[in-house]
Protein backbone atom coordinates (compact mmCIF):
# COMPACT_ATOMS: atom_id res chain seq x y z
CA UNK A 1 0.00 0.00 0.00
CA UNK A 2 1.50 3.24 -1.06
CA UNK A 3 -0.07 6.32 0.51
CA UNK A 4 -1.25 8.97 -1.91
CA UNK A 5 1.08 11.48 -0.32
CA UNK A 6 4.12 9.67 -1.62
CA UNK A 7 2.99 10.06 -5.18
CA UNK A 8 1.99 13.66 -4.64
CA UNK A 9 5.22 14.48 -2.92
CA UNK A 10 7.28 12.88 -5.61
CA UNK A 11 5.33 14.87 -8.19
CA UNK A 12 6.09 17.96 -6.14
CA UNK A 13 9.74 16.97 -6.10
CA UNK A 14 9.80 16.61 -9.87
CA UNK A 15 8.08 19.97 -10.16
CA UNK A 16 10.76 21.56 -8.01
CA UNK A 17 13.53 19.92 -10.01
CA UNK A 18 11.99 21.35 -13.15
CA UNK A 19 11.84 24.69 -11.40
CA UNK A 20 15.54 24.56 -10.59
CA UNK A 21 16.28 23.70 -14.16
CA UNK A 22 14.27 26.61 -15.51
CA UNK A 23 16.01 28.92 -13.07
CA UNK A 24 19.60 27.89 -13.55
CA UNK A 25 19.88 26.67 -17.11
CA UNK A 26 20.73 29.15 -19.87
CA UNK A 27 20.06 27.05 -22.92
CA UNK A 28 16.57 27.80 -24.16
CA UNK A 29 15.94 24.22 -25.26
CA UNK A 30 17.04 22.81 -21.91
CA UNK A 31 14.85 25.34 -20.14
CA UNK A 32 11.99 24.14 -22.26
CA UNK A 33 12.76 20.54 -21.35
CA UNK A 34 12.66 21.48 -17.69
CA UNK A 35 9.25 23.00 -18.26
CA UNK A 36 8.22 19.67 -19.74
CA UNK A 37 9.35 18.00 -16.52
CA UNK A 38 7.10 20.36 -14.60
CA UNK A 39 4.14 19.57 -16.83
CA UNK A 40 4.79 15.87 -16.42
CA UNK A 41 4.89 16.15 -12.68
CA UNK A 42 1.47 17.76 -12.85
CA UNK A 43 0.32 14.90 -15.03
CA UNK A 44 1.51 12.48 -12.40
CA UNK A 45 -0.51 14.38 -9.83
CA UNK A 46 -3.58 14.18 -12.00
CA UNK A 47 -3.25 10.47 -12.60
CA UNK A 48 -2.63 9.88 -8.92
CA UNK A 49 -5.76 11.71 -7.91
CA UNK A 50 -7.67 10.02 -10.68
CA UNK A 51 -6.63 6.59 -9.51
CA UNK A 52 -7.23 7.25 -5.85
CA UNK A 53 -10.58 8.90 -6.51
CA UNK A 54 -11.60 6.34 -9.09
CA UNK A 55 -12.62 9.14 -11.39
CA UNK A 56 -11.76 9.41 -15.07
CA UNK A 57 -11.55 13.20 -15.27
CA UNK A 58 -7.96 13.31 -14.09
CA UNK A 59 -6.80 11.00 -16.84
CA UNK A 60 -8.77 12.91 -19.42
CA UNK A 61 -7.04 16.08 -18.29
CA UNK A 62 -3.71 14.35 -18.72
CA UNK A 63 -4.74 13.47 -22.23
CA UNK A 64 -5.45 17.14 -22.95
CA UNK A 65 -2.28 18.27 -21.27
CA UNK A 66 -0.32 15.99 -23.56
CA UNK A 67 -1.99 17.51 -26.59
CA UNK A 68 -1.24 20.98 -25.34
CA UNK A 69 2.34 19.97 -24.61
CA UNK A 70 2.71 18.65 -28.13
CA UNK A 71 1.31 21.84 -29.59
CA UNK A 72 3.54 23.91 -27.37
CA UNK A 73 6.53 21.86 -28.30
CA UNK A 74 5.88 22.41 -31.99
CA UNK A 75 5.43 26.14 -31.57
CA UNK A 76 8.20 26.53 -29.02
CA UNK A 77 10.75 24.73 -31.12
CA UNK A 78 9.68 26.75 -34.17
CA UNK A 79 10.24 29.92 -32.17
CA UNK A 80 13.64 28.66 -31.06
CA UNK A 81 14.58 27.89 -34.66
CA UNK A 82 13.52 31.28 -35.95
CA UNK A 83 15.44 32.99 -33.17
CA UNK A 84 18.51 30.88 -33.80
CA UNK A 85 18.44 31.83 -37.46
CA UNK A 86 18.62 35.51 -36.61
CA UNK A 87 20.85 35.46 -33.58
CA UNK A 88 22.94 32.28 -33.73
CA UNK A 89 22.54 31.66 -30.02
CA UNK A 90 20.17 29.99 -27.64
CA UNK A 91 21.71 31.34 -24.47
CA UNK A 92 18.90 33.21 -22.81
CA UNK A 93 21.41 35.47 -21.09
CA UNK A 94 22.39 36.82 -24.47
CA UNK A 95 18.81 37.26 -25.55
CA UNK A 96 18.31 40.58 -23.83
CA UNK A 97 17.73 43.09 -26.53
CA UNK A 98 14.47 44.10 -24.93
CA UNK A 99 14.97 45.46 -21.47
CA UNK A 100 14.32 48.36 -19.11
Amino acid sequence: MIPIQYYLLFAGFLFSVGLVGVLIRRNAIVVFMCIEIMLNSVNLTFVTFSAYLGDATGQIVVFFVMTVAAAEAAVGLAIIISLFRNKQTLNINEINLLKW
Binding site: I24, N96, L97, K99, W100
Partner: peptide, 17 residues
Amino acid sequence: FVKIQTGVTDTYVLIFV
Protein backbone atom coordinates in the same frame (compact mmCIF):
# COMPACT_ATOMS: atom_id res chain seq x y z
CA PHE B 1 13.93 50.19 -10.09
CA VAL B 2 13.45 49.57 -13.73
CA LYS B 3 16.94 48.10 -13.90
CA ILE B 4 15.43 44.99 -12.42
CA GLN B 5 13.93 44.50 -15.85
CA THR B 6 17.21 43.07 -17.08
CA GLY B 7 15.84 41.55 -20.21
CA VAL B 8 17.10 38.15 -19.10
CA THR B 9 14.41 35.54 -18.75
CA ASP B 10 16.16 33.99 -15.72
CA THR B 11 15.52 37.06 -13.64
CA TYR B 12 11.90 37.13 -14.62
CA VAL B 13 11.43 33.50 -13.66
CA LEU B 14 13.28 34.06 -10.43
CA ILE B 15 11.01 36.91 -9.43
CA PHE B 16 8.01 34.88 -10.50
CA VAL B 17 9.04 31.99 -8.25
